[in-house]
Amino acid sequence: MQAGNSIVLIAAFAGILGLAGCSRSHTGSYPEYMRWLGDPAHGLVQTHVVRGLRISLTYLPSDFRTYQEVRNDGEHAGGGAENQSANTVAVLLSISRDTASAGHTTSDDPSAIMQEGVALNEQLKEHLELRADGCTYRPVVTALDNDAGMSGHINITAIYVDESDPHRLVKARNLDVAFDDPLFGCGISHFQFRGEDIDRRLHLDI
């Protein structure tokens, strides 16, 4: 009888753990979602420091983009935004000075980096290549974030689509984004995202 009780207790504990696990893969809180996404331990953001610059690339999941589109266009965007995001892959390239690094940077003036952001955005289609399952993609759209202001960050979102088969790119297991820096002399940086990290991501309830 005591053994039976123990089994029931273990099963209940396992059930609670399972439920806790399930509840952790969804959140309705945007700040919590952003904290999760920005944690390098989850594998969806990677950073390289070269020549005194921090170059980060964040994989932007489709629910993040749907949230952004709904927020920008209002609730009417709803289903359309979801479908559009689901068939594309998006990344956020972020460049800033590395304050901990004594290395050389192109300029000591933070606003100068922002000025180069415009030039970088114009050239990015040729310099941010996505490789997935033997195919190579270039961004169809790049957008410079104007909110960076005095923070001295360049934030550019790049969107990729497989025009012949939209599902092929979305289903690709391992993504390798190569940034061939055209402006700051930082060379080619690789940012790699694993399929299992993308699958395990936290989902944002919209």
Binding site: H48, V49, V50, R51, G103, D180, D181, P182, G185, C186, G187, I188, S189
Partner: peptide, 17 residues
């Protein structure tokens, strides 16, 4: 020049790390 500079920057930064 750009590419050589880029490669040397990467080697320098990775060696420092």
């Amino acid at each position: 020049q750009r590419m050589t500079q880029g490669v040397l920057s990467q080697i320098n930064s990775l060696t420092q790390e």
